[in-house]
Nucleic acid binder design. Structure first.
Length: 479
RNA sequence: CGGGGCGUAGCGCAGCCUGGUAGCGCACCUGCUUCGGGAGCAGGGGGUCGGAGGUUCAAAUCCUCUCGCCCCGACCA
């Protein structure tokens, strides 16, 4: 039996919900706020978000986007302009009705998303084809009055980025939509080490007000799918509602074609669920607050011998661009620190003790499987970087293996239901494209279409009605 | 929003059935010995029992209402 090093963390396999809450609290990522459904993101959690921001922001900038900031409050009349959009969001909008002591003439929505306010501004700013494309992103908070909440995965207020672009035509707007969803896929897989499927949403599942929604979806260890990022082609729905027109080269007035896209702090929840284990978090090196934690072995005259070397090594690592931290506290034993930093998810531990001083080496220990590598001090930087890269890969491969093993294909409803009863997962099954069949699957199995998947081949029959299938969607129970 | 469960020290829990003025483990504080996988011993501090109301000589315990959290469903990044 494996010795349980960290007490009081429920087993991930036995109750993933309890495990999740326990781990994010013990690792000090969040605390509950006084208002229901809201959370405080503590420094250890916010550091992950900052790393996510840094990387994504540079990718947006590389592709020509600029950041701006739009107001938190949106007049009700603005929100009401696009019919589907209002309908989709009105159940979860919070309203400001009083300012100071005065009742407002028009109530103001606390943004659940910013399409309407941004479109209102775009209609003022865009006159000519020369003004296009408009490529703007904002990092912001939004508020949605959610009924059931869970830190990071669904909270009433959350942090995200929302890109809002305007283009001269459909072709260019769709290119933008796809460019972004590919950036998301690349980011989530290569930095967060979470494999995703990417594809189009069904009409039922798409964003309120969009013509097409593309989504990246990740399979969580409990077999449920987490929508990790979305990119919408809005067509001219909003430009018509908000009158965003430009005069084109041919002297004609035309409506712009728009996109919007976003990822949120939900990604942190996905990262925790995907990689964590019974000892706590595992943060992929690319986004970890600390990539290496140095633990000096506090023994004898360690302050004179070990500590200087530990500090020297910490400095070397930081100079070579590694986010490193050294735990110099005297009041805890090395063993305690090992467990503590494992729980907090630091991907690589560096132990330095008397033996290492003698041999001019350090001990690197992986958070993933406790693999040890003894490396000579002169090779420290390159070996550490190599190990971090290996860990990053290992995490992705592990998650990928899980996702692959839990992705099934079936044409038979009974088998579909059995999959949903056992490990759940992604289930690919032919579908005719009719919303009624989509609804029926949901009623009978609780699974929904995550992405519509590939076009069906001729001969594929809809799993519900038996008619010619149009797509082979990925079905799953969603988070 | 429906069904179930739970709110007692910072955290995890016992006490409640059968009312009598609150206890355990961890954490915290002091001291000494320890320190390569959550150290040991000794001493110490901290809660009025989620909140409001009621029954009673007396309420953590019984009753009513209320708020919050968790789990399972219906709705959503």
């Amino acid at each position: 039996m494996e010795k349980k090093l960290v007490k009081d963390i429920p087993k991930k396999r036995e109750n993933i919900s309890k495990w999740y809450i326990s781990v994010i609290r013990k690792a000090d990522l969040v605390d509950y706020a006084p208002v229901k459904g809201m959370m405080v993101i503590k420094p250890s959690g916010y550091a992950i978000w900052e790393n996510i921001q840094k990387i994504l922001d540079s990718k947006f900038k590389e592709t020509g986007h600029q950041n701006a900031y739009f107001p938190l409050l949106i007049p009700e009349s603005f929100l009401n302009k696009e019919a589907e959009h209002v309908e989709g969001f009105s159940p979860e909008v919070a309203w400001v009705t009083i300012g100071g002591s005065e009742e407002l003439e028009e109530r103001l929505a606390i943004r659940p998303t910013s399409e309407s306010i941004i479109c209102a501004m775009y209609s003022k700013w865009i006159m000519s084809w020369r003004d296009l494309p408009v490529l703007i992103n904002q990092w912001a908070n939004v508020l949605r009055w959610e009924k059931v909440t869970k830190p990071f995965l669904r909270t009433s207020e959350f942090l995200w980025q929302e890109g809002h672009t305007a283009h001269k035509d459909k072709k260019e707007a769709i290119e933008e939509t796809l460019k972004i969803i590919n950036i998301y896929k690349d980011f989530i897989e290569n930095y967060l080490a979470i494999p995703v499927i990417m594809g189009q949403k069904s009409d039922k599942e798409k964003f309120a007000g969009a013509d097409i929604t593309y989504s990246v979806e990740a399979l969580m260890p409990d077999g449920k799918a987490l929508q990790a990022g979305t990119s919408h082609y809005l067509g001219d729905n909003f430009s018509k509602a908000f009158n965003i027109r430009f005069e084109d080269k041919d002297n004609k007035l035309k409506f712009v074609h728009q996109t919007s896209w976003g990822v949120s702090t939900r990604l942190i929840g996905g990262l925790v669920l995907t990689h964590g284990d019974d000892s706590g978090l595992i943060i992929p090196p690319e986004v970890a607050q600390f990539q290496t934690i140095i633990i000096p072995i506090t023994r004898g005259d360690w302050k004179e011998t070990i500590l200087p070397m530990a500090r020297d090594i910490n400095k070397k690592l930081m100079n070579s661009g590694i986010r490193s931290y050294i735990d110099e506290r005297e009041e805890y034993t090395p063993g305690w620190k090992f467990s503590e930093w494992e729980m907090r998810g630091v991907p690589l531990r560096i132990e330095i003790g008397p033996k290492d001083i003698e041999k001019k080496q350090v001990v690197l220990v992986s958070r993933v499987d406790r693999e040890k590598r003894f490396v000579p001090v002169e090779k420290l930087e390159e070996e550490t970087k190599k190990f971090l890269k290996d860990i990053q890969n290992q995490l992705f491969q592990k998650a990928k293996k899980f996702a692959d093993e839990n992705t099934h294909y079936t044409e038979d409803m009974k088998t579909f239901k059995e999959y949903m009863k056992e490990g759940r997962g992604f289930i690919k099954a032919p579908w005719c494209g009719d919303e009624k069949c989509e609804m029926k699957i949901k009623e009978e199995t609780t699974a929904t279409i995550r992405t519509v998947g590939d076009k069906a081949e001729s001969g594929n029959k809809c799993i519900v009605c038996g008619k010619e299938a149009e797509y082979i969607p990925y079905f799953a129970k969603s988070y």
